[in-house]
Design a protein around this nucleic acid. Structure first.
Length: 766
DNA sequence: GCGCGGGTGAA
DNA sequence: TTCACCC
DNA sequence: GCGC
């Protein structure tokens, strides 16, 4: 059943009535060019205070607005919905939180089918989930608990969306439901559409108890129908949790004690000898030090009766249960065909080798600087087939300490010491995971959850450096910057190829508008939310009625231009224009293009230009030059808008927009294509600060932050002017002393003084 | 339970 | 001071 | 959301 009950936004006008109304005399776009800014640039007229409410013709009432608010719903059941769904549960921090207080949570919830809401409540909505829920809690109605005590098998059928097992026939091994926990699981599978059979020959799936090994079930398997899948009991639980039929080929669903690969497709890569791997995984289990005191999700590795009641995905580390290394029982009955069972097998072998090779390192605390270069070896391992061998070889060569688990030296913990090239591995095996995490990061960014955004970015950065596919929670947990929550998230992505939290996030009604508004230069989360609360939904709404700052107006007028990334060749073209002009003004001035261009990126978000000159000691020395430069470039039509500028002795910069002259291309004279407006930043840098400025202006941001954090931890301070020493920090880390300048001129020395190995600009991607 | 980079301009 | 921005 |  879908809940298509909605409420027109216009109906909620009352909600906004105490908010500031859009002024009726907002700037008309045509007026942009009528004002001049600080630098002689055309700028829009400063905004006027909005008049009293009388003249208000708020966007709520315009016809277009109604159509632009597609979340309109029928009124009928909404009150009921609201009653049953406490707003706090669905509305995350940020987004509509401010807008919709108390009664209005309908906007955020109505778009979501009721059947998924329960799940959303437990899994996704309150973001920092205090504690994992068990699958039972998730799949049962709150009142079902008591009833279950009376009769375990009495589980009501799940709604259609959860009938994941429809058409599947399960044969349980052992074939009984004596243990209450098992009986419960069977009942739940049945409620999700599974049929249970007493005859092995008729089954599509063998669901094997975790206590049993492959040998234990071989007899049953002999009678199995061709194509039946054999999985451990985690599989149905995961399927139910993720509400989809998961790939039975995943190694986490294989049985214990499986002899080496014997699949029909007999992948040679699967040749890793099981006894050894068993041994390995057992010893490895001790490896990740159990250092997290708040390990609420830790469960003793060895399956306990109680544990089996939980969904495997929520059972915490499962590394202890010796996972079968490889094996593939082809599953024709699988609606979701295993996409690359071969890849999984291969990667599982590689995983083991990866882990193995790390053992000595973790065991004996390698501390030498170059540990990385001669990091572990796979020599002791029996060589797998050629393909796997080469794969492993490749992995070893590109191996980085980040994949080695979390025990790292102090300085290694900083991203600046881990940074790599942009595409450390183009065919990154974790590409999909990274993509999803990236979208999640984008979401958190939109709702202003900045630290979470940073955490996601760090995790992505770590994943980027991995050369093997991270498939399970414990693998993920070993990575720096990946904690329990992200590890779980990663596993969900790998297991289901989706992330439910992301889907809900993308579903948020105002998400698109928020994204739109925050894309405007000069508009952040605060302003965007305020506009949404005032009823604005489109850029046209804003242009007509919103109170805009000068920069925001430019940002709106050139929204599409500024959204586009700049191809590298255009950055070069723009840069050369600046260089030529600069050379014409002062031949001694040096122009350096920084930013992502300096890091070697093929496209840039904007163009960053460092202006320096030998012999200068204060950026003020260059101010006259910048004035001339900008005036000249403005006159030539290169610079088209000024967004911010300052000219002082300590630091001077100029932010604005530029455009490539469109005349020069004679090819299409009549259809002369307009070039896009581009963001351009100038930074005046005296020679004495060039190193620090380049460091800053080259980035990336995470790299900078980590360098600065490292400096701070070492009692120093790093900014775009230099590295300072003897910085005293008082309570709340507030800086007491400026500190004395140690180095500003030499980029390399700053690295050295911080104990960071030098990294070329193209190696500063975090 | 707390910190998470350091700075700038605009309003 | 707060917001948005730079890397 | 991670890490101390």
């Amino acid at each position: 059943m879908t809940m298509d009950v909605t409420i027109s936004l216009a109906d909620k006008r009352h909600l906004f009535e105490n908010l500031e109304p859009p002024p009726d005399d907002a700037l008309s776009p045509e007026e942009i060019s009528l004002r001049r800014d600080c630098n002689g640039f055309f700028k829009p007229r400063p905004k006027r205070p909005s008049p009293p409410t009388s003249a208000r013709a708020p966007p709520h009432t315009t016809p277009r607005r109604v159509s632009s608010a597609p979340q309109t719903l029928k009124q009928g059941d909404s009150s009921k919905v609201i009653q049953n769904t406490p707003a706090s549960v669905y509305v995350r921090k940020g987004v509509l939180h401010n807008l919709l207080q108390g009664t209005e949570s309908d906007d955020t919830t109505t778009a979501i089918p009721a059947s998924t809401r329960r799940l959303q409540r437990s899994e996704t909505a309150p973001l920092p989930l205090p504690k994992r829920m068990t699958s039972e809690n998730e799949t049962e109605t709150p009142t079902a608990t008591k009833r279950r005590r009376r009769k375990a098998s009495d589980v009501p059928p799940r709604p259609a969306t959860e009938q994941v097992f429809q058409g599947l026939v399960f044969y349980y091994v052992p074939n009984n439901d004596i243990a209450p926990a098992r009986r419960m699981r069977m009942a739940k599978a049945k409620a999700c559409g599974a049929t249970r059979t007493e005859f092995a020959s008729g089954a599509t799936h063998f669901i094997v108890d975790k206590a049993l090994t492959f040998q234990d079930v071989e007899a049953d398997l002999a009678t199995a129908a061709r194509g039946a899948a054999v999985v451990n009991e985690d599989w149905p639980l995961d399927c139910m949790q993720f509400k989809s039929v998961l790939d039975v080929g995943q190694k986490k669903y294989l049985l214990r004690g499986q002899p080496d690969a014997q699949p029909p497709t007999a992948e040679p890569a699967a040749a890793a000898p099981p006894p050894r791997s068993e041994e390995l995984s057992r010893s490895l289990q001790l490896k990740p030090p159990q250092r997290n005191p708040k390990k609420w999700d830790y469960v003793p590795p060895r399956g306990t009766p109680g544990r089996s009641e939980e969904s495997s995905l929520e059972a915490g580390p499962r590394g202890g249960e010796s996972q079968p290394v490889v094996l593939d029982l082809s599953a024709m009955a699988e609606p979701t065909p295993s996409r690359d069972a071969k890849g999984d097998e291969l990667s599982s072998v590689i995983d083991l080798m990866q882990e193995y090779r790390e053992l000595p390192l973790d065991a004996e605390e390698h501390d030498d600087e170059d540990a990385r270069s001669n990091a572990g070896t796979v020599e002791d391992l029996p060589s797998a087939d050629e393909e796997a061998g080469s794969e492993v070889e490749r992995s070893r060569q590109t191996h980085r300490p980040a994949s080695r688990g979390k025990k790292m030296r102090f300085e290694e913990r900083f991203a600046c010491n881990q940074a790599t090239a942009q595409d450390a591995r183009p065919d990154n095996p974790n590409a999909r995971t990274m993509e999803v995490l990236q979208q999640m990061a984008g979401y958190y960014d939109r709702i202003n959850d900045n630290w979470r955004t940073v955490a996601y970015r760090k995790a992505i950065s770590t994943l980027k450096r991995q050369d093997v596919r991270i498939t399970t929670e414990q693998e993920a947990l070993r990575l720096p910057g990946v904690g329990p929550r992200l590890a779980q998230t990663i596993e969900e992505v790998v297991t289901t190829d989706r992330l439910r939290r992301l889907e809900y996030a993308e579903d948020e009604p105002m998400g698109k508008v928020l994204r739109l508004f925050m894309g405007i230069y000069g508009v952040g989360n605060k302003q965007a939310q305020q506009w949404i609360a005032q009823g604005f939904r489109t850029l046209d709404d804003l242009k007509r009625d919103a109170r805009l700052s000068a920069n925001q107006l430019v940002g709106i007028e050139r929204y599409d231009d500024l959204q586009q990334r700049i191809p590298r060749h255009e950055v070069e073209a723009l840069g050369s224009i600046v260089k030529k002009t600069a050379a014409g003004i002062d031949g001694a001035v040096e122009i350096i293009i920084g930013g992502s261009y300096r890091r070697g990126s093929q496209t840039s978000g904007d163009i960053d230009i460092v202006v320096t000159k030998p012999g200068t000691e204060l950026s003020g020395d260059l101010v006259p030059f910048l004035d001339t430069l900008t005036r000249t470039l403005e006159a030539s039509g290169f610079l088209v808008a000024c967004l911010a500028s300052s000219r002082s002795a300590e630091g001077s910069k100029w932010h604005g927009c530029c455009v490539l002259p469109s005349s020069s291309s004679p090819s299409s004279s009549s259809t002369e294509q307009r070039h896009l407006w581009r963001r351009i930043d100038f930074l005046l840098v005296p020679e004495t600060e060039l190193g620090a400025a380049l460091l800053y202006f080259t980035g990336n941001d995470i790299f900078n932050r980590s360098m600065r954090l490292l400096a701070s931890r070492k009692g120093m301070r790093l900014n775009q002017r230099g590295l300072y020493r003897n910085v005293l920090r008082g309570a709340a880390r507030a800086r007491v002393t400026e500190g004395e300048l140690v180095e500003g001129r030499d980029e390399r020395r700053i690295f050295a003084l911080l104990g960071v190995q030098w990294r070329e600009p193209h190696e500063r991607w975090c």
